[in-house]
Simulated scan of single mutants.
Amino acid sequence: MSNDRARPPGPTTAHQDLHSEHGALRGEHPGRARQPVIKVADLAWLEFEKPDLARAEVFARDFGFAVAARTGRALYLRGTLPGSACVVVRQGRTSRFLGPAFRAAGRADLDRLARATGHPVRDLREFGGGQVVDLADPSGFPVRVIHGTEQLPALPEQPPLPLNVGGSRTRTNATQRPPREPARIQRLGHVVLETPRFTQALDWYLDTLGLIVSDFLFLDGQRDRGPTMAFIRCDQGSTPVDHHTLAMHLGPRTGYVHSAYQVTDLDAIAAGGQYLAERGYKRSWGIGRHIQGSQLFDYWRDPDRLMVEHFADSDLFDCDLEPGWAPMSASGLAQWGPPATRDFLGANPTPALIREVVRALRADNEIDPGRLLGLMKAMNR
């Protein structure tokens, strides 16, 4: 890993043991840019393409989304918290991820981004409105930065269940009966992407959008070659934000891995999962609690096999926490829960995966036999 990116002043090293067993070694990637073009405030929404919007809406409602708007060519999904729609599903020939949209802190940031990148600010002429700068990251994902979209009012929440814990007894003469219903989505949390151009893509998000790294993962015996996964958050100064808004990992494919949506609590995750199972949907992995991010998780496949996650109780970090460093492994993905499945890890050796591996090995990127062997070992540790 190049060490010509000077470590910016300010971040504390006092809390590394709270989220990782290692801190950075001298000369390793600092996990943030000294002078980013802008600092985005949050992940606004994700865009997908689906051939059957009616089927997409059925799953969306079963998963816990509310429908904010529907047109002949698009479906706009939202959570209960106030804000913009958090998922846009567009009519298309295939089922695929199109790209993320990040929210700028102000209109001036859009203008600054436009000047720096040569991409103009334009009006969004669809539901929600606002202005947008359309970019592409080094992996080829379209990335939108938006401002001024309509902020939708809050919807009724799925209240957390009162718990009797130790000496705290908040519930008497009353039973617990969580309803068997969809786990009501509150908001979009994060998206995870795979790329064979990991370092270049990582630096682009830090330099251009001002994101900062919460945790790095590296391959066993290859730490000197730099990280192979990064959990990345927005930088809102002293305001705590999600442990990661974007996560990326090195791999032979360029594509979407999963996206995550916050729900109320563990009962919402479990009862909502039972509701999905009874309707024939397939769980990919869960229920458990992650290490990086600490959130409770449950992963599902939609009818087109795209992976989505219910989560609750995520870590919140402010700008002062420096990145943690830990080895990458399947067993290191969770503190408790069932072992990570091959379906979740994307480790099933399909013909399509083999073609992607061969193509990646022949291309100009970060995938070479050593990296590929290290990734395979990590998925079996």
Rank of each mutant, 00 (worst) to 15 (best):
L135I: 11
G10M: 07
Y261R: 08
R115I: 04
L77E: 07
R7W: 06
T170M: 05
D235C: 07
M307K: 10
Y256E: 04
P51R: 00
A347D: 09
R125L: 13
E57C: 04
G210T: 13
G83V: 04
E356Q: 15
A230S: 12
I146H: 00
G10L: 12
S314I: 09
D364V: 13
Y256L: 01
E47Q: 15
A54G: 09
D42F: 02
D109H: 12
G221T: 03
F127I: 11
T71S: 15
P9N: 13
R34Q: 14
N164Y: 11
T71V: 10
H15W: 12
M229G: 11
S329I: 05
R70D: 02
R26Q: 13
E150P: 03
Q91L: 14
I287V: 13
N3A: 11
T13S: 12
Y299L: 06
G72M: 05
T172E: 13
Y256W: 03
T264F: 01
R301F: 03
G293K: 04
A54V: 12
L373Y: 09
A260F: 00
L250K: 14
E309I: 04
D320W: 06
A14Q: 15
D220Y: 01
L375S: 03
L266P: 01
G167I: 04
R253S: 13
M379P: 04
P8A: 14
A101K: 11
A60G: 03
P369T: 03
L110Y: 06
G280D: 04
D17N: 03
A14H: 13
R233F: 03
Y299N: 10
Q16L: 05
D4Q: 11
V357Y: 06
P8T: 15
Y261S: 10
F102L: 11
G237R: 06
R125M: 08
F97S: 11
G332N: 01
L43H: 07
E150Y: 00
F297W: 00
G106K: 14
D42N: 15
Q91N: 13
M1G: 10
L75G: 09
A183M: 00
A116S: 12
P11K: 11
L75T: 08
N348P: 02
T239K: 15
L372D: 09
D318N: 15
R93L: 09
D109G: 10
P351E: 05
P338D: 05
L193S: 04
S2E: 14
I212N: 03
A44I: 02
N380Y: 04
